[in-house]
Each structure stands twice: as C-alpha cells, then as structure tokens.
C-alpha cells in the first residue's frame, strides 16, 4: 500500500541547515497499522506531512497505492489527498463554521464519495449522534477529535494518518478515541500510520518504528 524509500528533508534556520530526515524508508500494507515514535521535535510530523503529500521531500520516494507522490503535480497531489488519505492532527482542524454533520461529510463530498449510510454509521459508532448540529467550538476536546476521525474515515481512505491524535486529551478520553479509531480502521481495512510520543499508545498498534536523528530504527 505504502512504500517509503530514502526520504530526506532539511530546513533552513538562522543557524544553518538542519537535516530532519536522512533517508527514511518503510513499508505499510493495506489494513496494517504502524506507530511512529520519537522525541518531540524528532521529525515525526515532518515524515507524516511528506507521506501525506502535504510537503515536498528533498530526495527520496513515497509510493502510495502504486502512485509515486513525489512525481505528481500540485493538482494531482491535492487529488490524492482528497481521495486516498485521511488526516487527523493534534489541532483538530475542523472547519469552525460548519456543524459536526457538515464537517463529518466534508472531505467525502469533496472527493465525490459521500455515502450517507456510511457517515451515519460512523456517527453512531463514534458516539456523535447527539452532537450533529453543534459547532466545533461547542464541543470538548475529545468530541472534536472524534469528529476529526470520522471526517477522515468518511471518505474511505486507503491510508489514515494521525499526528499525535490524543496529545491534547486526558488519558481516559485518549484511550477511548484510540479504541474507536482502531476499530474503525479494522472495519474499513485502510492502512494506519500514527505518530505519537506515548509508548503506551504505540503498543496498541501492530508495528512500531522509532525515529532518531533522522533515521528509523525498528523496535
């Protein structure tokens, strides 16, 4: 499903160029889940952004569902993001002016894959049924995160990316959200890549890798 090879990325800062990724590579099969761990600032988010076609690598290759992302035009990459990738970030990135229901279906509608039945099911399984007419600012952190997951899965992506999805939640909510996420990922059969600094959460996924000094080390 997903194959990453020799990914390199560096940033310029006032102190000079810093290499964040120095040749990262891994694979992820459909239906499999992988946890990406490492210290804060180790480049997990960067790697996720590259995999999610949100940013450009300096060198290396990302092949998703047979398509090399690095070769695509801006336009084509947007299409990939729309149709094949679901993203859940630490800041929930919901559209504040849309209701929960509208947020849930938004990406699916963008991609032309709106499925009311599936969205309904997601809504119920995520426990959002009573909240569908509310606006994001009226929800608690856990509720917002669940909406984000619902939005990402509503489009039936091939790959679900999560960047510290429980970082802003308390332990109980965090666990709750994780269970739901894993359930649904299993139900949809998409690949799941999650970045987290919590070892405990990482343990709940099938595989783990650790990012250190720009390189991956298996654990």
């Amino acid at each position: 499903m997903l194959r990453v090879e020799g990914l390199c990325k560096s940033y310029s800062t006032p102190q000079g160029r810093i290499a964040v990724l120095r040749g990262v590579g891994f694979t992820l099969a459909a239906g499999a889940s992988l946890a990406l761990t490492g210290e804060s600032g180790s480049g997990k988010s960067t790697l996720l952004h590259l995999v999610g076609a949100l940013d450009d690598a300096d060198s290396g290759e990302v092949v998703l569902d047979g398509v090399a992302l690095t070769l695509l035009s801006e336009h084509a990459r947007a299409a990939v993001r729309r149709e094949k990738i679901g993203v859940v970030f630490q800041q929930f990135n919901l559209i504040p002016s849309l209701t929960v229901a509208e947020n849930l279906g938004f990406q699916a509608r963008l991609a032309g894959r709106y499925d009311p039945a599936w969205q309904d099911e997601l809504t119920h399984r995520l426990g959002l049924a009573a909240l569908v007419t509310r606006y994001p600012e009226e929800l608690s952190g856990g509720q917002q995160q669940r909406v984000a997951i619902g939005r990402a899965l509503a489009v039936r992506p091939k790959l679900l990316l999560a960047d510290e999805p429980t970082g802003n939640l308390d332990e109980a909510s965090g666990d709750n959200v994780m269970s739901l996420a894993l359930e649904l990922v299993a139900a949809t059969g998409c690949a799941f890549l999650m970045a987290t600094h919590s070892e405990r959460l990482a343990a709940r996924l099938q595989r783990r890798v650790r990012l250190e000094s720009g390189l991956l080390a298996a654990q």
Binding site: L54, E74, H75, A78, A79, V80, R81, R82, E83, I85, V87, N93, L94, I95, P96, S97, F106, Q107, L110, A111
Partner: peptide, 15 residues
Amino acid sequence: LPTLRTLRALGVAPP
C-alpha cells in the same frame, strides 16, 4: 485562514 489551511490539507487545489 485556518479553514483555508484545512481545505488545502483535505485536498483542495489552490486554483
């Protein structure tokens, strides 16, 4: 602005 960023993240092309 945040909405715009989200839209981009969700896969809307700039044009």
